[in-house]
Each structure stands twice: as C-alpha cells, then as structure tokens.
Design a protein around this nucleic acid. Structure first.
Length: 885
RNA sequence: GGGCAGUUAGCUCAGCGGGAGAGCGCCCGCCUCACACGCGGGAGGUCACUGGUUCAAUCCCAGUACUGCCCA
C-alpha cells in the first residue's frame, strides 16, 4: 500500500508500472516484448543489450516504493534540499525540463548516496494566463465562450481540466528517473498555498509596499489584461512617421510634431521641446490649439526631449506613452485617456471618433488632418515596439487603476545577500545580471484581469477599500475581480511548499534549500523575487546556490520550438534510446553557454550503458561479487588507485556544477580504464575476480546518479548486492593513490601499445602470435605473463633480424616474419622528425637565459631532462635507420 | 544605444599561462572465448585577426571582424 496518497502520485505509479498511466503513447509493444524478461528471471539471462523500456519501468516502481524519496525532517542526517522550478500545469516535458531534471536528480542522488537526508520538493504552477487560455480554447471548440459563463462555472471547468491533465508533466519526470518527493507534491492553487499567497499580499499592503495606483500599464489587448514589464518583448517595426502641424493659439504660426500614432493626438495635453533647442525657445510658455479636439494645450520645455528626433517638438500623450507619462509627472499635466481597455476610442475623444477601433480612428484622424491641411509630410520609420509575450499582440500603454508592489525596499536585502555570498550564482556572470536588474527595479504591477488565479484579497464598497483575506463586516462589499500575477505566488515556492506560514517541522528542517537549478530566462521573473520574498518572510535566502543551466537548442542552433518544427520530444528519445542515454547525452553537452542538442551524445550514452552492462556480465561470469577485499595484485591496486582518483575528481566537479566534465570522466573511466585495461588485466590474470566485484561496485556507485537505471540493474546482478543502488552508501574509494601500481601499469600499456603499433605497421594479423623480448635500460619489473596474454606474444629470443622498437625505458625486440622495410623506414623517419622538433624546442628554451634564470627550477629541470631524452631518441632512431639499410 | 558571451580537428564542443583534447565522421586491420551500440592501429589544428603584458600566451589585457543572447 502507498503511504502517501495523492492523485498524481497514484497516476505516476500507475505509469511507472506500465499500466498506461501516461496519455502519451507507450513504446511499441513489440519493442517492450523483445526484452529478456529480466523481471521474470532477475538473475537469469544476459542479453547483449539491455532493454531500457523494460528495465526502467521496474526501477521507477522500486524507487517509489523505497520510501527514500520522501525526506524525513526528523532525521539526524544533514539535509540536502532542492525545490523544483514548478513547471506550468499545462506544460509537457520539453528538453529544457529534461536537462534540468537530470541535473537536479544527479545532485539529489549523489547526496542521498553520500548520506544526506534529501528532499526534492516537486509540484506545478497554476500558470494563470496559460491555463486559462488552454481551457478557453477547449471551450471554444465546443462553441462556448468564457464570457457566456459565470466566473464560478468557468473556474469549475478549469479545475476539472487540472484534475484530468494537470499531473502529466510530473509523471513525465519519472520517466527520466527523477526521484522527486511525489508525496509532497504541491500546486500553487492548493488551499494552503493560496492562503499563504493572500497572507503575503495583505502583509505587504500593511507594510506599505503594496498599493493601488493609477499608472501606465502594459495593456495586452489580445489578452484583455495588464501584463508586467517582463512579459513585454520589444521588436523592430517599420511605421509611418507623420508630421502634424499644431497651430499656435494666437494664430501667429504653428508647431510641427512627429508621431507614428496620430490617433493618440486626441489625448495630447502638451507639446514639449528641449530647453536648449533655439528653434523653439521663444515658444515655450505659449499654447497651441489641438487640432480636431480643439483643446488649448501648453508648450513646455523638458530635458528629455531629443531635439534631433523628428521636428524636435514632441506631442505629449500621458495616458498612452510611458515617456509622456513621466513628463506629465514632472510638469503636473493632465492625462486624457482616449483609448479604452477594449481597444476602442473612449468618450474622452471628440464625438466622431468615439467607439472606433484604434486602427479605424487612425485612418479617420489622418483623413481629417489631411482635409484640414495640417499634414506636413510622412516618412518610413523603424523603431522598437512592445509586443505581448503572452498573446503576441502589440502592447497598448494604458492608464489604469491597478495594484502595485514597490520593489525598492525589498530589493535592497536581496542585493546584499548576493554581494555577501549568501546566494552564489553559477556561472558567476549571472550574479551581475541579477544585481543590475535589482538595482534598477521598477514597481511591479500585480493585477491581472483574469479569472484563473489568486483573486485579490481586496474589497470595495463605494469609495471604501478593504484589504484582507476575509471580507469586512457589513453588506455591499464587492471583491476585486482581478487575480495576482502568477509569479507573485511562485515567489513563495521555496517556503510555501513546506507549509509556511505554519512553522512546520519540514519548514524548519528543509529551509533554506540547498540549490536552485533553473533557466536563465527566469532570473528576474522568479529567482530574484524568490530571494526577496524568502528574506522578507523567512529571514534567510531561499537557496544557497543558484545554478543556471544551458539552453538546449535544436541541432542546427535554432531555438527548439513547436512552431518552427525544431522541437525534439525527450520522451521520444527515452522510448528510443532509454532514459540513461538521454541523461548522459544531456549532461555531456551541458556548458556555461547555450548548447545544441546532439544525437551523437545520446548515442554515446547508449553505448556507455551497453558497455557497463557487458562489463558486469563479464565480472559476474568470472565470479566477481560485492565486497571490498584489499587490493593486493598489481591490476587490482592499479584500478583501486584510478577509481580513488575518479571519486575525488567527481566530488570536485559536481560541487562546481561541472556536469559535462563529470559525465566525460565517467565515460572514460568505464571505457578506457575499466573495460579496455582492467578487465583485460583480469582476463590475463593480473587482477582478481574478488576485487573486480568491488571495483565494479565502486564504478556503478559513481555512475549511478547519471545513469541510474543501468547501474541499478547491474548492481542487482552482482552477487552479494542488497537493496537499491539508490540508497547504497558505498565505502570510500577502495584504494588510496598507488603511484607504484600506476607506474607499473603505465609500462604494461606502453609495451602492449607498442607491439600493437608494430603489428599494424607491419601488417601482422592480431591473431598471429609473435615472439618478443623486452630490454630495459634500468631495473624494471614487467608482468610478462600478463603481457603475453594481452598482446598475444611469447617472451623469447626474437633473433638478430628482429625489429627493434624504442620505448621510454628501453627497447622491444619483435620477431617479424618479414620486415616491411619501407613501412619501418617511414615510421622511423616520422619519429625522427618529431623528436628533432621537440629537441629543437627544448634547446631553444634552454638557450634563453631569461628562461633558465626566471622560470621555476622544476620546469627548467624538466626541460633539460626532455632535451636529453630526445637527443637519445634521435641517436637511437638514427642507429635504427642505419641498421635497416 | 548599453551590457554579456562566443570564434580551437570535416562536424559538435571541452581545455584556458609552460610539450594541442573528446565524441562523431574519415582511413587501415580485426566477428580476439563481456560487448560489432564492439576491439586494435592511424590521419587530421599558424587554437578568428592585430597589437600588448610575460622568461613563456590557445589561455591574461586592449582593439578589430563576424556570431549569439540580455536590457533599453
């Protein structure tokens, strides 16, 4: 039985068990059926390859059942906590989620295995605009309009939609192997969460930060709502700049202004010129008569007017332009709002224009001005225009009564926290981006004219305004219909998910979280605001580290997007190559900058998985098992040393969020060290099966956070293993550094590789056994038996006509059936040229007195050593060439 | 307009003061008793350009040229 009931969780588990929890089509049945059926006979067959689909389903279930995904606040272990950036409840898993999920899971799993009490808080964001749009669209398909319903009826539909589809993206994370705490899954519209949100709003109001004001907002006509500055995107647009003559009121002339929005002239309340502009100095203080409207408006001087733009005279429309709004404030002007929220001309416009759409009004105004002979010319003009990120509509700056939050006071501690290192950004460059934004922060418009969201805890009766969670006593109070910007509730995520404002045990134990991993595009929208709210309400930052991950682009460098057709569905990749391959591939491409998705890296991951699987098969075959006997034999001592080094490096790399380096080291540890050399040494008798089991265990543990499914499956096949790799706390690195063993194996590798090169150059088949002698210049112990096995040679007397090959410590004599003199000469000449080049470089260094005098002694010595070595190599090579002829 | 990144092997990218690296691709040879999603051997880079600092620069600094992102 499940101890943590929950709608999504049950669904996630159902999915995990492959009973079809996901609405997404499962992998083809044929593929699933082709597996070896490991579940049926866990210790049974060893197919050449793992069937990821089959393996993944079983382990997702096992992890979920383990109980270790739920962090225990009463545990004595040190906590390690991550709050997932809550995806939109409407969302589907995309490649960015996949990367971020992998990164967080790597961190969580590593810490879980290292003995931390881990908690990965998960959940979804109600995403006001996006969710409302999705449901409206669904209704529209049935011919229903939102405005035909009551608010309550509509919200019922949204909740029904959420219940039906809302958990999908969290389920999808399980397919990647993400070990989130599904038992504590949160939704930003949950009752408790919603109470926290309203409480913060009321509290900020009491503190004087939240206020109501008439202000110019970014009105999104497509959405019918105000949006924040951060939801606005500026785009270059070509418009027609129209010059319009405004006659001076006393009839002595005119002032010509230039505008791309002629219809807004109806709302002009001044004409502004630069005080230093000699052309207009005489006019400042006089008035003009506003054409079409007939109002008399002043000519004022303002420093912010650019004399070089247009005619140098600026029409001032405070209700419809942000800059003009500021001018109004400076000069105490009026604002006349001629465009309404419905995108039509208001009653403040002259009667003939009232009710016209903006575009209609523009045509009409131009026609009327032309008729009046007041147009003084037009020109094409390229400028930057705000568009809504949400609806794509051109943003209409509109004067409107909204609720705002003054961010200045909240920003100051957030700036200090970063400056003092209480929050650290990785890569550090984002710290500056964060700081720059906070230092020039603007008031935040909190009101959204939507139905889905946290409705403002504000009540009106006539001119009375009450801010409070509950309506005030008495009749006739009406609640503000607007909802809060979704980011307002997201800002509370790191503590509201843990039960705030209740002082829960979880809150005390799991706040602040350890690290936030997220995308850079929400540094302002979300990260900075979480820091502000965390400091205000918890007295501490919400996370110690902020890791900003790469943006994953399409393979051609374009943005991954559905509309461009460049999107790649991570779940398709999982179906095809397995979650481990995807995880590994994504980590490999991760960088400090944007990256391109790479099928090659996914394939590399798939091959890594197969390799490790086969290595496990070999080790188990040879009798390897879990347990860590001390390494005695050379090969065992060597791999112990290599793994020990790799473990140390992994600690350093992951602590520094260097995930691609970590993945790369794992790859080479497994392919090169473990498989190419150690397992060959094992076959050659230079390592023991007992220790091979221990070595494999260490490698599996190190790789587990990256490729959890494969390592879990391999671990389960290793005799003596108990429980889950998920919670396995491996002994520290099996061996300390062993320089002697490393040096000895380096010699073995050199000899083997030299012999292989000789084979290739002389065209000798790998299976042909050769007679070889090794002559060392100094004392040198080589494990000849192992060499014979690995290089397929016999130690013996190669004879006088043997091929002599130089190695770093002496010579190798190889009896070759028939020496290919041409190939050998080419090889020697190439080696000679290279050695001469190196010698020349070293001698040049040593001849430089500045170098010998100023460079560190060890480098000078090293250079002398090299010079000697290369000189010897040249002499020996020349002798070889002589002998050849 | 301001700011921040980037320019390294055919491709995609690591490295970032002391002898240029990976994966893929390419060439050659291997079904070697874990693995052909494999094994072995190779070829292939005046590290964008111009100056500067340094005994020493792919790496640090300045500038130039492209490319991308963010803010206005």
């Amino acid at each position: 039985m499940r101890c943590h009931p929950g709608h999504h969780r049950a669904r996630a588990a159902a999915h995990a068990a492959h009973r079809g929890g996901s609405r997404r089509r499962r992998a083809p049945a044929a593929r699933r059926g082709r597996g070896v059926g490991v579940a049926a006979e866990p210790a049974g067959g060893w197919p050449a390859r793992l069937d990821p689909c089959e393996v993944e389903a079983r382990w997702v279930e096992a992890w979920d059942q383990s109980g270790r995904l739920r962090g225990d606040p009463s545990s004595p272990r040190a906590p390690y906590v991550i709050a997932v950036p809550p995806p939109n409840v409407t969302g589907a898993l995309h490649m960015g989620h996949a990367l971020n999920g992998t990164i967080q899971d790597v961190l969580i799993r590593r810490h879980r295995m290292a003995g931390y009490e881990t908690e990965w808080v998960t959940g979804t964001d109600h995403a006001g605009i996006a969710t409302q749009a999705v449901v409206e669209k669904e209704l529209a398909a049935q011919g229903i309009r939102r405005l035909d319903m009551t608010r309550e009826e509509f919200l019922e539909r949204v909740w029904a939609w959420k219940t039906e589809y809302g958990g999908r993206i969290i389920e999808q994370f399980t397919r990647l192997g993400c070990t989130m705490d599904f038992s504590r899954e949160r939704f930003t519209m949950d009752d408790a969460y919603a109470r926290a949100v309203l409480r913060v709003f009321v509290d900020l109001h009491e503190k004087g930060y939240v206020y109501r004001d008439t202000y110019l907002v970014n009105w999104d006509p497509g959405l019918g709502s105000a949006i924040s500055d951060l939801e606005v995107e500026n785009r270059e647009v070509t418009d027609t700049l129209v010059r319009i003559a405004y006659p001076l009121s006393d009839g002595t002339g005119e002032v010509v202004v230039a505008t791309v929005r002629p219809e807004t002239m109806l709302g002009d309340t001044a004409v502004a010129v630069n005080p230093g502009d000699e052309r207009y100095q005489a006019l400042v203080g006089r008035t003009v008569t506003l054409p079409l409207a007939g109002r008399t408006i002043p000519i004022i001087a303002d420093d912010h007017v650019d004399p070089a733009f247009g005619t140098g005279a600026l029409k001032v429309t405070p209700a419809h332009d942000p800059n003009d709004f500021e001018i109004m404030r400076r000069h105490g002007l009026e604002a006349v709002q001629v465009i309404g929220e419905d995108g039509r001309m208001t009653d403040a416009a002259p009667e003939v224009y009232r009710g016209l759409l903006v575009v209609e009004a523009q045509e009409r105004v131009l026609a009327d001005l032309t008729a009046a002979g007041l147009i003084r010319g037009t020109e094409e003009y390229v400028h930057s225009v705000p568009f809504s990120h949400r609806s794509g509509a051109r943003v209409e700056p509109l004067l409107s009564l909204q609720w705002f939050c003054d961010m200045k006071a909240l920003a100051t501690p957030a700036i200090e926290a970063e400056a003092k290192g209480q929050v650290r950004f990785t890569p550090p460059t984002w710290g500056r981006v964060y700081r720059d934004w906070l230092e020039d922060i603007q008031p935040w418009c909190l009101s959204r004219q939507l139905w889905w969201g946290h409705q403002l805890p504000v009540w009106y009766r006539g001119d009375d305004v009450h801010v409070g969670i509950d309506p005030p006593d008495g009749d006739g109070w009406e609640r503000d219909p607007d909802v809060l910007d979704t980011w307002f509730s997201s800002a509370l995520w790191p503590f509201a998910t843990l039960g705030w404002p209740e002082r829960t045990e979880e809150l005390g134990r799991f706040y602040p979280t350890s690290v936030l991993s997220t995308a850079r595009e929400i540094i302002f929208l979300w990260v900075a605001r979480m820091v502000m709210m965390g400091l205000e309400y918890m007295g501490d930052v919400p996370f110690r580290d902020v890791y900003i991950h790469s943006v994953v682009q399409a393979p051609d460098g374009r943005r991954m997007s559905k509309s461009l057709g460049t999107g790649i569905d991570p779940l398709n990749v999982v179906d095809r190559d397995g979650a481990d391959a995807l995880r590994f591939g994504l980590l490999m491409i991760t960088s400090t900058q944007d990256v391109r998705f790479s099928e090659d890296r996914i394939r590399q991951g798939r091959q890594l998985v197969t390799k490790l699987w086969n290595a496990t098969r070999l080790v188990v075959d040879r009798g390897g098992r879990v347990g860590a006997p001390p390494p005695v034999v050379l090969g065992d001592r060597w791999i112990a040393s290599v793994i020990g080094t790799a473990v140390e490096e992994a600690d350093r790399l992951v602590a520094g969020f260097e995930f691609s380096q970590f993945a790369d080291r794992l790859y080479h540890l497994i392919f090169d060290d473990l498989c190419d050399w150690y397992l060959e040494l094992l076959k050659a008798g230079l390592a023991t099966p007992e220790f091979a089991g221990a070595a494999l265990e260490q490698v599996l543990a190190l790789a587990h956070p990256v490729i959890p499914f494969t390592t879990e499956e391999c671990w389960s096949r290793l005799p003596g293993s108990e429980g889950l790799m998920l919670t396995h706390e491996p002994a520290r690195a099996p061996g300390p550094r062993d320089p002697d063993a490393e040096a000895a194996i380096a010699l073995v590798r050199e000899v083997v590789q030299t012999i292989r090169s000789v084979r290739a150059e002389q065209g000798i088949a790998p299976r042909e056994r050769l007679v070889v002698a090794v002559e060392a210049d100094g004392p040198c112990e080589l494990p000849l038996d192992a060499l014979e096995a690995i290089a397929n040679v016999d130690a013996g007397e190669p004879g006088d006509d043997a091929l002599v090959v130089l190695v770093s410590f002496g010579r190798i004599l190889v009896r070759v059936p028939e020496v290919d003199a041409t190939a050998e000469r080419a090889h020697l000449e190439a080696a000679l040229e290279a050695a001469r080049g190196e010698l020349a470089r070293a001698e040049r260094q040593l001849a430089n007195e500045d170098f010998t005098a100023r460079a560190p002694a060890r480098l000078v010595d090293a250079e002398r050593e090299k010079a000697g070595r290369f000189a010897g190599e040249i002499a020996a090579t020349l002798a070889r060439l002589d002998a050849l002829t």
